[in-house]
């Protein structure tokens, strides 16, 4: 069977298009590259949607945590503490079983027990909490001078926040936020190892990589393939976030622009 044929059969296997049965014997390199690549679709989907949605919640949480009123501050603090203080792995398990019991009470909650929604919600809350902490830190470090200058120009309230404080805090937070984005993509590999069932063996990249490692008893092929895909994904994320960073800093003189320095944030 040619490799092209394999790509046609398995290229979209992870979303249920193509051959129904996974290869059982005679695993070729092409099988592994195609299926693991197909699984990456899930990682990219989880990563992008959770990041986009999480960005907004994170901003709201950061503002709430920075607020003077305990009514806003306390809930935000607790939310951030719960999601940052416990392992994502356990959050996935708990989330899955929580959605299962919800489903018995409210039939409308049914889709939440599927990975595409349930795991997404957990990832969304999780990244929102981590990003909120980053944004909160940035809000606290906005230079006093900028705030005073805004006052001097007669800006106040929402307008001051929208035009001065928030853009500056984004600029300050962006390097750290880039790291958060990278590790969010890495964290998406936990989904199918944590309670959420893989329907019809439609899983993410790591799901297929471990499938091959188990079947061939040889970890030295599937995991490096997976690593290659993720390094590529990481480079793309860094590139995209770098472009945004450039845009955020475009008005600053060259030497003041903040470069993104990659730092480790690892598993949560």
């Amino acid at each position: 069977m040619s490799c092209w044929q394999t790509i046609q059969d398995y290229g979209l296997r992870s979303i249920g298009i193509g051959e129904r049965l996974l290869p059982k014997t005679d695993f070729t390199l092409c099988h592994q590259v195609t299926l693991i690549g197909s699984g990456m679709l899930w990682n990219i989907y989880f990563g992008i949607v959770a990041l986009l949605a999480g960005f907004f919640l994170a901003n709201a949480l950061a503002v709430a945590k920075n607020s003077g009123s305990a009514w806003f501050r306390k809930p935000a603090e607790w939310f951030i503490f719960v999601f940052r203080g416990s392992p994502l792995f356990i959050q996935f398990f708990f989330g899955y079983f929580l959605f299962l019991s919800l489903k018995k009470l409210v039939p409308a909650a049914a889709p939440f027990t599927d990975a595409w929604l349930g795991a997404l919600v957990v990832l969304f809350f999780n990244t929102a909490a981590y990003s909120a902490e980053i944004f909160y830190g940035a809000l606290r470090t906005v230079p006093k001078g900028e705030s005073e200058a805004a006052d001097a120009y007669g800006f106040s309230g929402w307008k001051k926040f929208r035009r001065i404080i928030w853009p500056t805090s984004m600029r300050l937070a962006w390097p750290a936020y880039t790291n958060e984005a990278i590790f969010l993509f890495h964290a998406t590999t936990l989904v199918f190892f944590s309670g959420f069932p893989a329907w019809r063996q439609e899983g993410d990249a790591l799901y297929y990589a471990s499938y091959f490692a188990e079947k061939t008893f040889n970890p030295f092929i599937p995991y490096p393939i997976l690593a290659g895909y993720f390094i590529l994904l990481t480079l793309i994320v860094v590139g995209v976030f770098g472009l945004i960073n450039k845009r955020l800093n475009r008005h600053l003189p060259q030497e003041h622009r903040r470069k993104i320095r990659l730092r480790l944030r690892l598993i949560r």
């Binding site: 129904r20 049965l21 069932p197 893989a198 329907w199 019809r200 063996q201």
Partner: peptide, 9 residues
């Protein structure tokens, strides 16, 4: 899986 039904494992 072989019978072609929707399998969840």
């Amino acid at each position: 899986a072989a019978a072609g039904a929707q399998l969840v494992e």
